[in-house]
Each structure stands twice: as C-alpha cells, then as structure tokens.
Amino acid sequence: MSPDDFDGTERRLLQSIVEVARHMFAAAASSIFLVDPDTGELVFEAVSGEGEKELVGSRFPAGTGIVGWVAASGQPMVADDVSTVTQFAQHAAESTGYVPRTIMAAPLIRFEECIGVLEVLDPTASRSDLDDIELLGLFAMQAACGLEFLLRVRRSEGREPDGDPHMLLRRIGERLPGRARPSDATVVRLLAIADDLLAP
C-alpha cells in the first residue's frame, strides 16, 4: 500500500470509527453514513458488528428517519424502544440487516456543516459517566476531524494541475449563478481581486 493511497486510509479510518464506537458502548453494532454533497443522500459506508457488510455503498434518501434528522439538524439523538416501530425495523433491516431496540446517532460536523452520521445500535454499557448522547457526540467530533484532514489532503493532491485556466473559468462560471449560498459572495470577491491583479 502506498503512503498516498487515500482511499485505503479513508476505508481504514471509517472502519476504525465504527469499531471504536461499537466498543465504547458495548453495542450490538455501529455504522457510519456520509452525506453525498451532490444529492444530499446518505451513503452507508462502514459497519461493525451485527449487520450486512454487503450493504456498504447503498444509498438512503435524505431527511428520513433518525439518521435523516441527525444529518439535517446537526444534532445527536437517542431513541429507545424502537423495535416495535415498523419504520425503524424497516430502516434498520434496510441499512444493516439488524433490528435494534435502541438507536443512537450523532452528526459528523465539518465546520458548521454535516458531512455524515455515526450510528450506534443497542448500546449496553457506557465507558463514561457522560450521557451517552454527549459521549457519542464528542467522539463523532473527533471522527469528523479525522475525515476532514483526509479530505483536505486528498483535495490538495488532486487539484494542482489545471493546465487550461479557461477550463477553470468556464467551470466557475457554470457553478456560480443562481445559488444564493454565503460562499458565493466570497467567490465573487476573490474573482474581483483576480480581475484587479490582471488589470493592465
């Protein structure tokens, strides 16, 4: 394995997050979902414990169920006694092949934005006197930081050679209009600076 095999590192990072999360709570299972930045869908990325490994890679619509709420709100949540609820049984069976009694889920936050959800099924004991929800939240914060560094390294590696600046300009042009995101104003300011620098 080469040192810049970021895919391999990402796999191992995701797997280690779910392994640790499961053992922190002596839980039946733990799994991790990442938000697809283009569609908002949640992609099932890794599982530890009970569950179907072959479901890794499957996608779930945004904004549904507990994981959906956690992704949308950016807040952790615990739900008990869920095994009697058809919706959960279905969700759990679909996502991991295991029907839990308790679902805990915490967001993976990367600078004010939710990039994924860490889920723990059927915790039986906690290794801390912190509330479960807070402990999971703290751990998710660490996991998100690890993922963020990895994504940054990967992006800085892949981005350098943009041989044709006209391609870059065209892409910026296509991405910019009609979306009132706060980052757009920053982009416009940066373009204005570029314009000033190029001025004769």
Binding site: G40, E41, P61, A62, G63, G68, A72, G74, E113
Partner: peptide, 8 residues
Amino acid sequence: LTDGKTGT
C-alpha cells in the same frame, strides 16, 4: 428540515 442538502 427538508433534506440533508438544504442545511439548517
């Protein structure tokens, strides 16, 4: 909170 994409 309609979906994960809209953000809060």
